[in-house]
Structures are given as structure tokens and as C-alpha cells.
Nucleic acid binder design. Structure first.
Lengths: 206, 206
DNA sequence: AAAATCATAGCGAACGTTCGCTTTTTTATT
DNA sequence: AATAAAAAAGCGAACGTTCGCTATGATTTT
């Protein structure tokens, strides 16, 4: 029922999205042409418009399908830990694992910001809005042992801190990165944990 | 000697860079055409090539001239404070003031990442490399009262944490931002200060 | 047979750049 | 200070190419 064999057109559509995604990540939106997309997808110019009405519709399909919240929300929901510290640490580890698996998770948001001025972000949030209450319930239950930090601020700083690890990495060329010590993510996260945990000695290492 | 009146061509060149910068920030690099640039600069198509050899040369001039380190390095150098906590707090305030004044400071880096894959970043670091030793000397002198955090990691997490405030802001549409509580930057920074300060009660408020 | 899918060829518009040529500004010489 | 030569700056039109997109008709999938 769910896994009936894909109709022919759906396979092509998926190939178009795969090709477009890869090219957008490499070259950005305006730097990628429809001809590059169809060539990579193995079809011709005319064919693509049976599946998408325009180039921007392709971007929207890619953007809504592969935005980072698809990965972030489940991670925050599935993370476990007896104490708040353990929970945050587990969530951090899972999240960084996911971001390592898909380095493009954040890049797609940057493209949206740079080339569309974030015009599609409101629509993105409409789609993930239904999941937000459950998420905030999970976090509330876990946040007891943390410093008295408002939950929205906590969530925002948590996500932002993760983003920043990858952004600073992207902004540093290899030469500088080695000069900067090639910080491990665990060390990076540890600073944040000290920031949000109530007990000063709550960090497990050192 | 230094302030002899600008030659005519230099004024035009400055107008071109101003126009290009504004347009790149609004539309990205590939989303901006040479015709838009020359129109905004008040010249014609042929004229611009007396000053820049190509569109990419315009981008490089903009990028190297207005990248965020121009603002960040002086801030970290000029920040003051008797204790490490005071110093970091002062630096944080100055930096956020600078970032508020020029919201595009980070955006220009995103354009470079999205549309050039960071191809010009190595050249950027070559230009700012001479200033790095002085900076790290300043930070070393101030870092005594902090937790035992390697200096490169400290610098990276500090910058990253600032970036994250603006990135999460850009990624949240107004509706969600109000739902998230419209966090003040002071609260945001406070979390980070707790993370890097040795004494748990070192924060001055609360 | 009907519907969906695809290839071919081509549209007009916009792209970055270059071309001669004119005008303005700077420099050098009186 | 006036003048002539040189250099710099500006113009508008056109270049060849590529852009996103769309007719139309053939072919394949349901």
C-alpha cells in the first residue's frame, strides 16, 4: 500500500530533485542552470516541466524536503538522559552526528538566506509548526535541573551554538584551522554545557 | 599628503563599490547584474570596466574591503575590563553594537560561502594574518581568570556564539521569533559567560 | 484508448563583456 | 597662468552566449 512500486514519473521527479539538490549545494541557486539539472537527471529540457512548473518550484521542493529541522526535531525528541546534563549531552552528540552525516544541512539554509532573502522561511515554519508543541513539552520536562533559563532562549542558544561550530569551521581555511588548534566538538560543547548547567562542576570530564 | 582630494575616478570607483555592496547583500552575487550595479552607481555599462576588469573583481574588492574581521579585530583589541569577566562582557557589548550597526557583516561571508564555495577565503586570511599575533597576545593577557580553555577554542567559541545569535534570528520569521520570546542579546550572552567563567557567580546581574 | 512522459527545436530576454568614439580631467611645458 | 599633450573616464550600441521557459509532436506507461 505504502510501498507500491514508484510510478515512472515519480522516479524521474526524484532524480530531478537529487540532481538539483547536489548542484544547488555546489553552486547556489542562481549559479545553477536548468540545463545542468536536466543533464544530471538524465532528461532533457522539455521533460522537466512535466514535473515542476518552474526553477523556483524545484528549489522549494528541495528546500522543504531537506531542511535541517527534519534532522533536528527527531534528535531532540529521541535524546535520553537521567539528568538534564546527560540529556543535553546526549542530544548534542546525536545532533553533531547528524550534522556530520549531512554537511549540507545548514548550507541549504544559507542559500535560502543569500539568494531568496529568506522568502520561503515562513512557509517552512508553517510546515513544522505542528511539531513544535510536542518538542517544547519534551524540553520542558528535561529542563528542570538547568539554570533558570527561559525555554525559548535555551532552545535558541542550543541550536545556535551548534550552528556556530560548523560555520566557524566553514569560515576557516585549512591553514588557519590547524593554527586554531582543530578544536574537537566535545570541547566546544563542553563550554556550552558549563553555561547552561546549574551546578558548576556538572561537566563530566576534567 | 594623505588627504589630497580624491581623483575623479576614485570617487566613481567608490560609488561602484557602494552600489555593488548594497545589491549583493539584497540579491546575492549571481542574482545581481552589472546593469543594476552601473545604474545604481550612476554610470553606464562601458564605464565600469575602466575601474574593474570583471564582475568578480568587483566582488573581491567588496569582500576584502568589508569583511567582518575589520570590525571584530578592533573590538577585541579595544575592549576593557579589570577582570576577565568584565573584559568578555565589554567585548561582547561592543561586538553586538558593531553587528547591530552593520547587519551585513556576517551576510557577506554567507554569500562567499554559498556562491563561491569560499574560494576567496584563503586570500582573505592572508590579509588579516599579520594582525592575528597581536590579537592572541591581547586575549592571552585577559584569559587568566577564565576556565582552562585553550585560547583558539575560546576565540572560536566566542565568535561562533555571536554568529549564532544573528543566524538564529535570520532563520526565524517574525511569527516564530515572538513565539520564541524575542530573546535579548544580554540574556543570550549571559549563557555563554556562565560557560567560560571560572567562578559560578561571576555574572554581575541576577 | 487515454494519460502521462519525454525529446526536439526554438522563443525572447537578459547575461557579462567589448568595441569605437567623445568628453573630461590631469600632467607637463611654457 | 595659460596652453598643449597625455591620460583617464565616460558613453551607447552591439557582441556572442546563456538564461528560463514553451510550443508541438512522438513515445511510453497505465
Amino acid at each position: 500500500m505504502v510501498d507500491e512500486p514508484l510510478r515512472k514519473g515519480e522516479q524521474t521527479q526524484a532524480r530531478i530533485l537529487d540532481a538539483a539538490f547536489a548542484l544547488f549545494m555546489e553552486q547556489g541557486y542562481h549559479g545553477t542552470s536548468m540545463r545542468q539539472i536536466v543533464e544530471r537527471a538524465g532528461i532533457t529540457m522539455g521533460g522537466v516541466y512535466n514535473h515542476f512548473a518552474s526553477k523556483e518550484e524545484i528549489w522549494k521542493a528541495v528546500f522543504f524536503e531537506r531542511h535541517p529541522y527534519h534532522a533536528i526535531l527527531p534528535v531532540l525528541r529521541e535524546a535520553e538522559g537521567a539528568t538534564a546534563a546527560d540529556y543535553v549531552r546526549d542530544a548534542a552528540r546525536r545532533l553533531v552526528g547528524e550534522l556530520n552525516k549531512q554537511q549540507d544541512l545548514l548550507h541549504i539554509m544559507f542559500i535560502e538566506l543569500v539568494e531568496f532573502n529568506g522568502a520561503h522561511i515562513p512557509q517552512l515554519y508553517e510546515r513544522i509548526a505542528p511539531q513544535l508543541p510536542q518538542l517544547s513539552a519534551v524540553l520542558s520536562a528535561k529542563a528542570g535541573a538547568l539554570r533558570a533559563i527561559p525555554l525559548p532562549l535555551l532552545a535558541r542558544s542550543f541550536l545556535g551554538y551548534f550552528f556556530s561550530f560548523y560555520i566557524t569551521e566553514a569560515l576557516m581555511p585549512p591553514a588557519v584551522r590547524s593554527l586554531m588548534g582543530d578544536a574537537s566538538f566535545d570541547d566546544f560543547v563542553d563550554i556550552y554545557l558549563h553555561g547552561i548547567l546549574a551546578a558548576p562542576g556538572a561537566g563530566s570530564e576534567e
